[in-house]
Design a protein around this nucleic acid. Structure first.
Lengths: 209, 209
DNA sequence: CGCTGGATTGAGTCCGGTCAAGCCTTGTGG
DNA sequence: CCACAAGGCTTGACCGGACTCAATCCAGCG
């Protein structure tokens, strides 16, 4: 568990401790649940980051979302998971059996709220996919990521391919845009997995565009 | 109210009749609620179709989703609506005050489920936006629309611009793709707002691609 | 140090966007 | 029932941003 990963701000309190769930640890790249697997649990990130992934018939890959400390995921209503969930790096996950929620009114409500928040994020994501240029998408992605982390130096816990599959771009285009933003002095990379927003103002306008 | 509009299959029973809500009628293009408006109601389509729309800073337009008979919409968790809702054609809408839901456990649960279903649709939509070609997007759109309607001849209740803004394409591209699919004998238009799938098999493969 | 897989860079292509006419439904009024 | 307008839709020519293919580069690690 690196300091960088811990820098993510939990958006909601841990449910794990208070609820009859267990805590599991996963290593980088490990699958937490599979696409098509029965959805009998809900999950909360305690430490680390998680991605949800789906492959279509042609093998094209789409990232549904990234989840960091405090986030719930696996909130499907259907019988099975439409996306797989995978650990981005080493992480600890609280696993809560769905059936234990029945009748637990506040838990139920908390999960409904989490579901609605998810929906909001999905719609925001949609908006971005529909009408933004590659440059705007990448700027938006970095600003969002930075917003969730304290400190000037932000972690970039996912690889370029993951970013590409999240934004609906190719890895080459993502790479070019990052290089470009850096050349313009809007961001600053240190290594591949660490960055700073050197001009948050311009970048935010770009992202919002 | 035309027969075509009524052909949509309600996916969930009407809540309006059973609940302390009122029913309102809207004409084509009328706004049901505005972007940024306080979200103190939830809505269910009784007759007709509805679109949710959002304009970004640059004036780019994105359709969030289309809703037909039986569908709930306006299910935001936040204080205000992120998208506006507008009547596609003449329609009747059940309006349910959110506060009347407190403590009504089965209603609450029904709405959570509706929220989760929305989330699923949003993710499906996302998948499509990320990785599909214009041709696949349009095929997918038509197959989805057809699936929700009985009878061989399907209604196309929205205009080309709405389809474009839903799929993240331009109106010209949508038009070209429709023309192309028709030229290949996969679909058949009669007028601008009515179509048949003449080769559902091939079309579905295209859509799934 | 030397590997190795991820990331970058470059050249060329193509899909979908843009700009610009026209066409056709649809609805209105004579 | 037809004429006419008006908006929505289609079509065409051209352009450009993102993709593809391919060759390095280099950070991270043993």
């Amino acid at each position: 568990m690196t300091a960088a990963v811990l820098a993510f701000q939990p958006l909601q309190p841990a449910l794990g401790a208070a609820s009859p769930g267990s805590v599991m640890a996963f290593a980088a790249g490990e699958e937490i649940y599979a696409q098509g697997e029965e959805a009998s649990f809900v999950y909360q990130v305690l430490e680390g980051s998680v991605r949800t992934v789906r492959l279509d018939v042609e093998g094209r890959r789409q990232i549904g979302d990234f989840y960091h400390a405090g986030d719930f995921f696996g909130l499907e209503m259907g019988e099975e998971h439409r996306f797989a969930a995978e650990a981005l790096g080493a992480c600890r996950i609280a696993v809560i059996r769905r059936s234990t929620l029945d009748g637990a009114n506040d838990l139920e409500r908390a999960l409904w709220q989490a579901t609605a928040r998810e929906l909001e994020r999905a719609r925001e994501h949609l908006l971005m996919m529909g009408r933004k240029t590659a440059r705007e998408k990448v700027a938006n992605f970095l600003v969002d990521l930075a917003d969730r982390q304290a400190g000037a130096v932000k972690a970039l816990p996912m690889g370029r391919q993951d970013i590409a599959d999240y934004l609906g771009l190719t890895i080459e285009t993502v790479s070019r845009m990052i290089t470009q933003l850096q050349a313009e002095g809007l961001i600053e990379l240190s290594g591949l997995r660490r960055f700073r927003l050197t001009d948050a103002r311009v970048l935010s306008r770009l992202a919002a565009a």
